[in-house]
Amino acid sequence: MSCPKTQYLLQEYFSEDLSAVARDELDRHLSDCAHCNAELESVLFVQRDIQQWQEQSVPHWDRGRELFRREHRAERPLSQLWLSWQWFPTAASLAMLCVLLFNVSVVSNESGFSVSFGGSSGANIDLRAQLAQFEQAQRGEMRQLVARVESRQDSNNVQLLQAVMEQAQQSTADSFDQMYAYFEQQRLLDLQDMRAGYEQLVDSDYETIRSLQQLVNYVGYQGDIR
């Protein structure tokens, strides 16, 4: 019933580099030997069986988009910017806001610095003076950022500026009308500065122009709703 050649011959059957002579020999044996022939049929059947596999669609995934963009410094969502060093200036302004909001006083004397909350320390905090200081710091930051946009023409920075402005708006919303007004005024001043800057950038590459265009639109939009 069984055949001593089955194992070897069927192993060879699936080989791609079988010589013509060997292939002839194999075919001849298969036509003569019912056992080998039946064995071959059954393994071919099972091979065809598994080949009926239906391609399944890939569940949704990011395709490495984030990784790719991060490493190639292309556009990325604003939330990602929180992780980047470029947020240092904004972090500094936020810290400044906290100082104002919580009425923290920093007193410098011979023994060093002392920090207190709620204005209970002897030093009388002049909010106006702090605001003026803040204004200057903020202006300085904005100028630096604009300078960076101009020098590096980097779309990231344009986005950053957008984000900084958004952030500034959010921070000042509701409670502190005064500061809000200040920010608003500041923002408009800075935007004027930036608009002047854009004009110099117009002949740069397409990507930059597009990003700037978006920012200009954004600025226009923000201006309209106020």
């Binding site: 194992q7 069927l10 192993q11 059954s42 393994v43 091979q47 069986d49």
Partner: peptide, 8 residues
């Protein structure tokens, strides 16, 4: 080949 036999 042994895999195919097993599948069978």
């Amino acid at each position: 080949y042994s895999a195919l036999k097993k599948l069978k």
